[in-house]
Structure formats: C-alpha cells, structure tokens
Simulated scan of single mutants.
Amino acid sequence: MKITGYTDENFQQAFPGQPYTVMINPETIKWQRGIEYNEQQAPNTSAPSQKYKSTPVEKLNFDIVIDCTGIVDSKRVDMNQEISSLESIIYTYNGKIHRPNFVKVQWGKSLVFKGVLKSMDTSYTLFKPDGSPLRAKLSLGFSEYISPQSVEELDAKKSPDITHLISVVEGNTLPQLCEQTWNDDSYYIQVAQYNELNKFRNLKGGQKLIFPPIIQPV
C-alpha cells in the first residue's frame, strides 16, 4: 500500500518527495458508503416511504503497523522518521496551499481512494529499555474529496433527470457503465467527451465520471 500527497484538489500535482509505503499491509480495510433518505408518510398509508435526500461522501478506515525493530525492514528503524514522513503527507499543514495535503491511498490496482485525512490515532506498543518506541499501530480515517467544480457540475439543474456521479471500479468499461446507468450503452462517446477522456477504454479504478442528464455532443 502506498499513500501519496497532492497539492491540488484534482490530484494532479504530487507533493514533493516519495509516497509513503506502508511497512505491513493492513489486515482489514473498511470502505464505508451510504445513502440518506427522508421518510415521508402519505395520508391513509400504513408506513412511510423513503425519498432520496443525498449520497454522503465515502469513507475509508484501516490500521497500519510501523515496526522499527529491524525485523520487517533493516533499513527502516527510526520511528520518529517514519511518523514524520507519514504526517508530512497526510496531516501536516501545507503553507503553500493553506491546508493539509489531499491524499491518494492505493493498494494494488483495484483499490484507489482519493480524499483527505479525518483522523489519525497512534498507539505505541513496543519500546526499547530507554523508552524509545519500536512499534506503533496507526488507525487512519479518510473521507472522500470531490472538487467544488465536480460538485457544481453534479448539482447543475440541466434537466428534470438526475445527474450521476459514478465511481469507476477496476475493470469497468464506459459502455458497461452507460448500460448500468441508462440501460443503453450507445452514449459512451458522449460521456467520454463530457469528461474529456482521451482513452476511455482503459478506465482507472477510483476514477470519478459525471454522467449528465442530457447527453449531447460537446
């Protein structure tokens, strides 16, 4: 697993330096998604109906272990350096952008999460005789980040239909996503143009695509 910092909300300009490579991959990852509804009960009915309200941002939570005993990696034995390197990418205030960095978490090809750090809890679990920490468990929580431009395009009232913001899963194709969204795969060229995709046959996992309510040539 690699954790990369970015200085722009479109995740194009990487934070200087190398991404942080996790020493031991997490045992479990919790990727949280949800939908919010307003419950409305019509007159003369026995139960309320659920009217769509919103789709909250996705959340990613996992624990990692930093082991500086030399057993995992004989070259990475400085706990302070390990913590500092990770904090500079995901936590430390970046004066150039007046906020902490944007963060991409990637494990293999299929798990790609773009967001911002929400929580970071550190528990030290092993120490040298002098009290210096040798092992630590970090519980990290991230929230998905969507740029204001994408939100504005998503919320634009262009028609009575619904605009869709689709999260690409590794292996998805654009015609397949059009079929899932509209039961018609013939709109894939227009969607590619709308999202300014040069190569729409090789979509990346974690990529966000906007499917507008009215598909017209751009």
Score class of each variant (00 low, 15 high):
M1Q: 06
T7V: 14
D8C: 08
Q13P: 03
P16H: 14
P19Y: 11
Y20K: 02
T28H: 02
T28W: 00
K30L: 03
W31Q: 10
G34K: 01
I35S: 10
E36Y: 04
E36V: 02
E39S: 12
A42D: 12
N44Q: 13
T45S: 13
T45C: 05
S46D: 15
A47W: 02
Y52W: 01
T55R: 08
P56I: 02
E58I: 02
L60W: 04
F62H: 12
I64S: 13
T69K: 13
I71V: 10
K75I: 04
N80R: 14
S88F: 07
Y91G: 01
V105T: 05
G108K: 04
G108N: 10
S110W: 06
F113G: 09
L134Y: 04
K137I: 14
L140Y: 03
F142H: 02
E144Q: 15
E153K: 10
A156T: 12
S159T: 13
V168F: 15
T173F: 04
E179A: 02
T181E: 15
D185N: 05
Q190I: 11
V191S: 01
A192Q: 06
E196I: 00
E196S: 09
N198A: 06
K199P: 00
F200Y: 15
R201Q: 13
I210D: 00
P213C: 13
V218E: 15
